[in-house]
């Protein structure tokens, strides 16, 4: 029997004994750490990854307009502290005009999931059949 195996059994015995005596699970501080800071950090990372993916989707709809919007936003952030409120409001209006050039979403024909996936798979099957026939007919 290896040392890690003995330690493992020792921990199992300790866990069971601890629960039997104190009626509470051992390692509450670790569980609290996992439920608190660790989960918050994970949610933060996940949210940012989602935001990044969302940005790419938004960017891809009209990359040229997206670039100018980001450029204008950057300019505003740099200039706003040094201009009058009237000028700042004018900048904001210009930015709003610019933002209208970037489509928020595109109208699309919606299919139910089953039909859509069936169509995708049919296309894959058709592609494979075509390649297969081409392979068989080739000299």
């Amino acid at each position: 029997m290896m040392i890690d195996e003995i330690l493992m059994y020792a921990f199992v015995v300790f866990w069971v004994a601890w629960v039997a005596v104190s009626k509470k699970e051992p390692g509450r501080w670790l569980i609290r750490f996992c439920e608190g800071p660790l989960t918050t950090f994970a949610t933060f990372i996940d949210w940012n990854v989602g935001r990044m993916a969302g940005f790419f989707v938004w960017f891809s709809r009209n990359p040229a307009a997206a670039l100018s919007i980001k450029g204008e936003e950057m300019k505003l952030r740099v200039e706003i502290p040094g201009v009058t409120p009237e000028k700042a409001a004018e900048y904001e209006r210009e930015l709003e005009e610019l933002r209208k050039r970037q489509p928020v979403g595109e109208p699309m024909v919606r299919l139910n999931i089953g039909t859509a996936m069936l169509l995708v798979l049919l296309f894959i099957a058709l592609y494979l059949i075509t390649i297969l026939i081409r392979g068989w007919l080739a000299p």
């Binding site: 493992m8 921990f11 866990w15 069971v16 051992p26 670790l30 569980i31």
Partner: peptide, 16 residues
């Protein structure tokens, strides 16, 4: 192997 031991202990902590 010692890291595997820690992993197995954590397994016990959430399955038991």
């Amino acid at each position: 192997p010692y890291i595997l031991l820690i992993v197995a202990i954590l397994d016990v902590m959430y399955f038991f």
